[in-house]
Design a protein around this nucleic acid. Structure first.
Length: 429
RNA sequence: GUGGGUGUAGCUCAGCUGGUAGAGCGUCCGGUUGUGGUCCGGGAUGUCGCGGGUUCAAGUCCCGUCACUCACCCCA
């Protein structure tokens, strides 16, 4: 901070790892959110909105101390009242907190909610990874039924399909539960102990051994060929649950592949775990994922209650659409564009196009007193179907020239009939 | 946190072995009186990321720094 007025201040820019969304891309982004939200609503999920920041303890307990997300990626700060708050790094913990806080679990179960909003993680940015990213997610809490797992996965897939995405894959696994995971974990730790790993990986193996399974490095994967994998060591209940989920996904016509090495970065997952991977996204290929979290509600101080949900990455979904050449915001911004010649004509058009907007038409007009040519050019660029030209001559005659920009056809329409005419003309093909 | 690549007009980029900057697109104006999309003519906009250094001279070389980008780690 300098007070020297002769020193030029540096241009401000969006913080590292964040970006601005501008038209038309922003429209495509909004469309992704809408599409995912629609899929959730069609399955009976209600909208929930929770704060973007929460008590830091919520994430420590919910997401898990051993995760990278909590241990080194949180935006944590102290407010003026001395409270430790954290910008939410993921969406589930806050929703579950709200479910518990408002006693929703004492009502009809499962509690089904969907949400959207930004998450924040202090990470090194790269393709498809930002410090602020938006997710749309759903949570179904209070019932441990494999049919619900299948529904959640199916809703995720419905949204993705509705976007038009094709080059992706749904990967599925089961991570077991409190009954079977400890024994498996011991088995895995013993196996990892016998491997030749670097210090960092060895440390990770100690804190969260499952995480080592999806290490991308060749030299690590090579040694993992014979590693014991979670789905092969499930207890009877988990195995039955997993089988049921697969069977119902098949009934739902949701294609999936079993990926026994799939692991997720959040500690709360139990049993069903899945990830949506897009084949043209680069290193950050996972654009959505989720699973069951039967211990989470209790972990953050609620009653023992099961839950299942997913989070879909909106930013990465948009990237995936772009990679597949899917245009999510086709068409024009407006239907009608006003071309006024002179101030009197402009105020008349302001009034008439305002009325047209209220009648449901999308209208814009040439502001700033540009000439005829420039105004027509603006009309053309807007993508409007009709240009309404109004000059002194027309005003005296009490009519406007309505030109269909695609065909060049132009008709004179009485000013009193303009809105009705535009409405009628807009519905004809 | 670690490593590679890149930073020149609003955008995409060119500037060879150092001599004080260009193209295309976009934008604006015009091609006579009130009509766009094509075409033609013209105009505007650059702290060459920033700060040091070497040199008579640096966009061009060196150092540092910041940012962007891709990858690892990890994750949506």
């Amino acid at each position: 901070m300098t007070d020297d007025p002769t020193e030029r201040s540096p241009r401000l820019q969006a913080p590292k790892g964040t970006y601005d969304l501008l038209p038309p891309r922003s429209e495509a982004f909004a469309h992704v959110v809408d599409t995912y939200a629609d899929a959730a609503r069609r399955a009976g999920y209600g909208y929930v909105s929770t704060p973007m920041f929460e008590d830091t303890a919520l994430f420590r307990r919910g997401v898990g101390e051993s995760t990278d997300v909590v241990s080194k990626e949180m935006y944590t700060f102290e407010d003026r009242g001395g409270r430790s708050l954290t910008l939410r790094p993921e969406g589930t913990a806050g929703v579950i907190r709200a479910v518990v806080e408002h006693n929703l679990l004492s009502g009809q179960l499962p509690v089904k909610l969907w949400y959207t909003g930004p998450n924040f993680r202090y990470e090194q940015p790269q393709s498809g990874r930002y410090r602020q990213h938006v997710q749309v997610g759903i949570e179904a809490v209070g019932v441990d039924d494999p049919a619900l797992d299948a529904e959640v996965i199916s809703v995720a897939d419905d949204g993705v399909r509705a976007l038009g995405l094709r080059d992706y894959e749904l990967r599925l696994t089961s991570l077991g539960c409190d009954a079977c995971r400890p024994a498996y974990r011991a088995l895995l730790v013993a196996f990892l102990d016998g491997l030749d790993l670097d210090d960092a990986t060895r440390a990770r193996a100690r804190i969260n051994p499952l995480r080592v399974l999806d290490d991308k490095r060749e030299q690590v994967q090579a040694q993992l060929a014979d590693a014991p994998l979670p789905p092969d060591h499930l207890c009877a209940e988990c195995a039955a649950h997993f089988t049921a989920v697969q069977s119902m996904l098949t009934d739902l016509v949701v294609p999936f592949t079993i990926d026994k090495r799939l692991v997720r970065g959040l500690d709360y997952y139990t049993r069903t775990t899945f990830e949506l991977v897009h084949h043209r996204l680069g290193a950050q290929a996972s654009f959505g994922g989720g699973g069951r979290y039967n211990g989470l509600v209790e972990a953050i101080g609620g009653p023992a209650a099961p839950g299942v949900g997913y989070g879909m990455g909106v930013d990465r979904s948009l990237l995936a659409c772009e990679a597949e050449g899917i245009d999510l915001a086709p068409g024009s911004r407006v239907d009608v564009f006003g071309v006024p010649l002179g101030e009197a004509a402009k105020s008349t058009l302001v009034r008439l196009l305002g009325a047209a907007r209220r009648a449901g038409l999308r209208c814009d007009l040439a502001y700033g007193g540009r000439g005829m040519k420039g105004a027509m050019k603006a009309a053309d660029r807007s993508g409007a179907r009709f240009a309404v030209v109004l000059g002194e001559r027309d005003l005296e005659a009490g009519e406007a020239q309505v030109k269909e920009l695609g065909t060049g056809e132009q008709v004179a329409v009485p000013l009193d009939d303009l809105v009705a005419h535009l409405l009628a003309a807009s519905v004809t093909p």
